[in-house]
Simulated scan of single mutants.
Amino acid sequence: MGTRIKRTLNRVKFAAIGAAAGASLGALVSRNAASTAAGVGALVGATIGEKRSTVETTIDQIKTKKQS
């Protein structure tokens, strides 16, 4: 799988997880809070997914160079 596709899918996966977690926590307060918390959770999740993907890609590149 290409690096760009892998990074995008990782970002999407973590954004969805963050949105679900944020919405569930915000729903304890109100509907408006659920909506806002879902947006914030998605943003945080996408950021985490991007960073995690970058680290995994770097580690894979180092492993490949070491094997050569």
Rank of each mutant, 00 (worst) to 15 (best):
G2N: 14
G2H: 08
T3R: 05
T3V: 12
T3K: 09
T3I: 13
R4W: 08
I5V: 07
I5C: 02
I5R: 14
I5G: 01
K6Y: 08
K6I: 02
K6H: 07
K6F: 13
R7K: 14
R7H: 05
T8F: 07
T8V: 11
L9S: 04
L9W: 07
L9A: 00
N10D: 10
N10R: 10
R11T: 08
R11K: 10
R11V: 10
V12S: 02
V12I: 15
V12L: 12
K13G: 03
K13P: 00
K13C: 04
F14H: 07
A15F: 00
A15C: 01
I17N: 01
I17Q: 04
I17K: 06
G18H: 02
G18N: 01
G18R: 02
G18E: 03
G18P: 04
G18V: 04
A19V: 00
A19R: 00
A19Q: 01
A19T: 00
A19S: 06
A21V: 15
A21F: 10
A21Y: 06
A21E: 00
A21L: 15
A21D: 00
G22N: 03
G22Y: 03
G22P: 02
G22E: 03
A23N: 01
A23P: 01
S24I: 13
L25W: 11
L25I: 11
L25T: 05
A27E: 02
A27S: 13
A27P: 01
L28W: 03
V29A: 13
S30W: 05
S30I: 03
N32A: 09
A33S: 13
S35T: 13
S35K: 14
A37P: 12
A37W: 03
A37F: 13
A38M: 07
A38E: 07
A38I: 05
G41M: 01
G41W: 05
A42M: 05
L43S: 15
L43K: 13
L43I: 06
L43E: 06
V44F: 13
V44A: 12
V44N: 02
V44Y: 08
G45W: 05
G45H: 11
G45A: 07
A46G: 10
A46H: 09
T47M: 07
T47F: 10
T47P: 00
I48V: 15
G49N: 08
G49S: 05
E50Y: 13
K51G: 08
K51W: 02
K51V: 10
K51Q: 09
R52W: 09
S53M: 08
S53E: 07
S53Y: 05
S53H: 01
T54S: 13
V55T: 12
V55A: 12
V55D: 11
E56W: 01
E56K: 10
T57Q: 14
T57N: 13
T57P: 01
T57K: 12
T58W: 08
T58A: 15
I59K: 10
I59E: 09
I59L: 09
I59Q: 05
I59V: 15
D60S: 11
D60P: 00
D60F: 03
D60W: 02
Q61C: 03
Q61H: 12
Q61L: 15
Q61V: 06
Q61W: 10
I62W: 07
I62H: 11
I62N: 03
K63I: 14
K63F: 11
T64C: 04
T64G: 08
K65L: 15
K65A: 15
K66Q: 15
K66T: 14
Q67F: 10
S68T: 15
S68Y: 12
S68R: 15
